[in-house]
Nucleic acid binder design. Structure first.
Lengths: 226, 226
DNA sequence: ACCCGGTTGTAACGATTGTTACAACACCAT
DNA sequence: ATGGTGTTGTAACAATCGTTACAACCGGGT
């Protein structure tokens, strides 16, 4: 059953770079399962125990948070080879932070935490991969907090543009204002307004998703001041 | 040299719950060092490679971030048995996210990442402990982001009070307004003002660091609305 | 060419928060 | 008791952002 999906596993963060033959050997005789979920079914609910490392073999799932008012808020979509909530398998909490729902018919590979710990122990590549995965998660979140704590929307935009440009004075941002505003944690019209004002002040020249930065030093200076 | 500090190591997140004798056996013949830093010296600088797992044996260090404008911003103090930047030893980044400075004369135990990986592999307790440690870090950050993205200061306060009360209608908060405001990412007077307004509206009765919640449902309702 | 859904641009107004400055208070050490 | 230091309370004003509503624009499908 797993054999046909070994090439998906090699692409996952845990098994990354490990030849399929090796994966097969590593998993041979180990306790793990493949489970299928039909479209729309709930894979796990916020607060329920997170005991299994789970990797998507086929299909797609959505991570959704139920807001305190009951509103549903989509957090992210995950496709084949992605792990589900890898940072909640260990640590104090050990429960799902979001509702996980199958967007389409979905196949998961899963292994219990205790069995998985032993698996990690048995192969240094696996161990390093998994350590990388949760460390990356922590690093990403840490960076995100730094970003969110810029004092103003303008500062966030400056930082974002400087990062995104990677030195090119002209570039394209393949995100809608809606997506950007969610990333920044502000309202969409506020974002558009700020971009317009930055245009008027000559900090940038933008037209829809194309951005041009005439003078990098102006943006940098703005970040340093505030 | 290490022997006298084994009881510090047992209290660290990695070696937690492992008898000192076992730690001694685990470390026997392994490549690791004890390094000392005099008061005020820089242990590591933002951006330099993070290659060693480091645990404070004695002393105290401060993690500081240099703001983009050059202002120094203290992030946290760490004392004996604490690890330095455990989430940056693995993953993509692998460089220190902050300047680490010895506040007093300080002694560190350190081991290179590659050697440490092997050590983790050799003992399941160690492995689970370290996985717990970085998972906890990711979980903490994730919770913090959720908190920061409440739309208003009042919502943050409601959430915080409800969490902190743990069901008791009267409790004390052992943090200054200054500390709270930094936690919330707002200015200190804004915090005091909001607390005063919540008092006037009868949501809470507070006097300095003592808080009383006359009606929990009012606070909950406020969180659900917005 | 036309319509349509989604995206972007714009404006007015209100709500929230930051800034600054100072007064009142608590606590500790002398 | 006195003074010093740090914390809390308060006020006025400015800056920033959210909200709402609507117009203009884009691209794809018919």
């Amino acid at each position: 059953m797993i054999h046909e999906y070994l090439d998906i596993l090699t692409e996952s963060a845990v098994f990354y770079g490990i030849p399929t033959d090796d994966i097969q050997n590593l998993l041979d005789g180990k306790l793990c399962q493949v489970k299928s979920f039909s479209k729309g079914s709930m894979i796990s609910q916020t607060g329920t125990p997170c005991e299994y490392i789970r990797i998507i073999l086929d299909g797609q799932v959505a991570g959704e948070m139920t807001d305190l008012s009951g509103k549903i808020l989509k957090i992210e979509d995950l496709g084949p080879s992605k792990m589900i909530a890898p940072a909640f398998l260990y640590g104090r909490r050990r429960t799902y932070p979001v509702n996980v729902i199958a967007s389409v018919n979905t196949l998961l590979w899963q292994m219990h935490r205790d069995e998985f710990s032993k698996l990690l122990q048995s192969d240094l590549r696996l161990l390093n991969n998994y350590l990388d995965a949760i460390s990356n998660r922590a690093q990403f979140l840490s960076e995100k907090i730094r970003f969110l704590s810029f004092p103003t929307l303008r500062a966030k935009l400056c930082f974002f543009f400087l990062q995104y440009s990677a030195g090119n004075s002209s570039f394209r941002i393949p995100l809608t204002h809606q997506q950007l505003s969610e990333l920044f944690g502000v309202a969409r019209p506020s974002l558009t307004r700020e971009i317009r004002q930055m245009n008027q002040e000559g900090l940038i020249n933008s037209e829809r998703d194309m951005i041009n930065i005439p003078d990098f030093s102006k943006l940098r200076k703005l970040l340093e001041e505030k």
